[in-house]
Simulated scan of single mutants.
Amino acid sequence: MAPRKDEELNEEKRGHYDPYSHNAPYPYEEEKKKGGCCRCLFIIIVILVVLAGGAVGALIGIFGFEKVKSWVGLGSTEADSSPTAAPTLTPVYEFNQCPTSGDCCNGLASNCDLKVDEVLFATLHNAHVDETDAFPNHESPLEEALVAGYRGVMLDACKCDGAVTLCHGDCGFGKRDLTEVFTNINTFLDANKNDMLMINFEISVGQPTPSEIWDVIGPIIQSKTYTYTGGNWPTLKQLQTDDKQLIFFKHNGVTSSVNQIREFHDFAAETPYEFKSVEEVEDTNNSCVIDRGAQSAKDFYAINNFVANELLGIPSKAGSEEVNEKNFLTQRLADCEAKTGLKTNFINIDFWEYGDVIEVVQEENKARAN
Rank of each mutant, 00 (worst) to 15 (best):
Y20H: 13
L146K: 02
H125S: 08
A24L: 14
E279A: 15
V216H: 08
E321Y: 08
A58Q: 15
T90W: 06
E274C: 00
S76E: 14
N137V: 07
L236I: 00
D18F: 02
E143L: 11
P25K: 06
K115D: 12
N192L: 06
V49L: 15
E131R: 15
A52N: 11
D133P: 00
A369D: 07
G54K: 09
E8S: 11
E325G: 14
A163T: 12
N184H: 13
L124V: 07
G149E: 01
K32V: 12
V56W: 09
Q97E: 12
S316Y: 04
S101Q: 15
E263K: 07
E274Y: 14
K34D: 09
A85R: 12
T100V: 08
I62W: 04
D156W: 05
Y93S: 13
V147H: 10
H125K: 08
E11T: 12
F346T: 10
F121S: 04
T209M: 02
P25E: 07
Q331T: 14
G152W: 02
S256H: 02
P3R: 15
G107L: 05
V361I: 14
G172K: 12
P91F: 13
F188W: 14
E12G: 01
V258A: 02
F42N: 03
N186C: 00
N106K: 06
A157W: 00
T225I: 08
D266N: 15
L74Q: 14
N111R: 07
V258H: 03
A85N: 13
G149L: 00
N106C: 10
G319H: 07
V278R: 10
E144L: 07
